[in-house]
């Protein structure tokens, strides 16, 4: 099994799917000649040409809609929106066209597009380049939302998303493109539904997704070594639909839940996971579930303030200690 960086895994998935099916194309700002801001499409322009690796104008709603229209006639576009902050501009086409066309046509038309975007707070990018929008996407009926926490998922989720007949939004992270991890050498399709047990434990479940899975894993190590607490870590790689059964199974085992999210708390992944726990296994809880979320501010430029706005592994440790009184 080879070690690949997150961006290399995404690039490999593009390459394989474009070789497999001549109707798979990719499009976005600077993805062709320039190779992509995060190199996810590096080299593909030379290999597949300008008809299939399309440098678009800076017209997010326009080119997203163009990709959706192409998908009506069997083309499989992988659309890169350079930064999730710009995806606000494409919401009309994503929500009004892609997510709804199957339903409002009575199943006659589908929009099998993949939209990938880099989200999250990186290093001092300021308020308009630090959005975490997954909670917006996951609330829309007709859209699947996945978010890879490692190169294996980044590769396998994109592979499945390209072939799936639904529109899929893939939430990546600015800080994760250079993360290394093992990716199977043979072709691998990751399920677009479910969750993964990233670490087994018995005392508390830490729910994370994308970058917050790593905070949870780090926190679990600290909790084990310093406090004798064995935390289970659940990786919610699928945000829409959420893995109800997986969430409940782990809470039934540990009876405690902490949800770590990089986004602001309101109407978010944490709120949704807590609601599922309340609905399904409230009486099996030994403590009230807790969210570890961002502070509800536009992300500041100042580095100290920025760090204070976003949670980290230490915040997860503190939440668990408080919950267990240790």
């Amino acid at each position: 099994m080879a070690e690949l960086m997150y961006w290399e895994a995404i690039r490999r998935a593009h390459d394989e799917e474009m070789t497999n099916d001549p109707l798979v194309i990719c499009m976005g700002e600077d993805i062709g000649v320039a190779g992509g801001t995060y190199k996810a499409t590096n080299g593909l322009y030379d290999k597949y040409g300008p008809e299939r690796v399309i440098d678009t104008p800076i017209s997010e709603n326009g080119y997203t809609g163009l990709g959706i229209g192409a998908s009506f006639l069997g083309v499989r576009p992988i659309i890169e929106i350079m930064s999730v902050n710009f995806a606000w501009l494409a919401m009309d086409q994503l929500f009004n066209s892609a997510a709804k066309v199957r339903y409002m046509s009575g199943g006659q038309l589908t929009a099998p597009v993949v939209v990938r975007s880099a989200g999250g707070t990186a290093h001092q990018l300021g308020a308009q380049h630090s959005a975490r929008m997954e909670k917006v996407f996951m609330s829309i009926a007709g859209l699947r939302v996945v978010t890879p926490s490692n190169p294996r998922q980044a590769y396998g989720l994109l592979k499945s998303a390209v072939r799936c007949n639904d529109p899929v939004y893939i939430n990546e992270h600015e800080l994760m493109y250079n993360m290394k991890g093992e990716v199977p050498d043979e072709e691998y399709f990751h399920p677009l539904v479910g969750s993964e047990v990233a670490r087994e434990g018995r005392d508390v479940t830490l729910f994370g997704y994308n970058i917050s899975v790593h905070w949870c894993l780090q926190a679990a190590e600290t909790l084990s070594k310093q406090y004798g607490i064995e935390a289970e870590v659940i990786d919610l790689f699928a945000l829409a639909p959420l893995d109800r059964a997986g969430i409940v199974a782990s809470v039934r085992k540990t009876h405690r839940a902490v949800i770590a999210e990089e986004a602001e708390p309101a109407v978010g992944v944490g709120a949704e996971v807590m609601a599922i726990i309340n609905e399904e296994c409230f009486f099996e809880l030994d403590a009230a579930p807790v969210r570890v979320s961002a502070v509800n501010v536009p992300i500041p430029y100042n580095h100290t303030l920025e760090k204070a706005a976003i949670p980290n592994a230490g915040d997860v440790v503190a939440a668990v200690r408080k919950m267990l009184g240790k």
Binding site: L23, I25, E51, R52, N61, G62, Y63, T64, G65, L66, G67, I68, G69, A70, S71, F72, L73, G74, V75, D92, Q93, N96, S97
Partner: peptide, 15 residues
């Protein structure tokens, strides 16, 4: 809404 969808279908035809 249909402006870009139409262009996209045209892109598919051209491909």
């Amino acid at each position: 809404g249909p402006f870009p969808l139409a262009a996209g279908m045209a892109k598919a035809i051209k491909m």
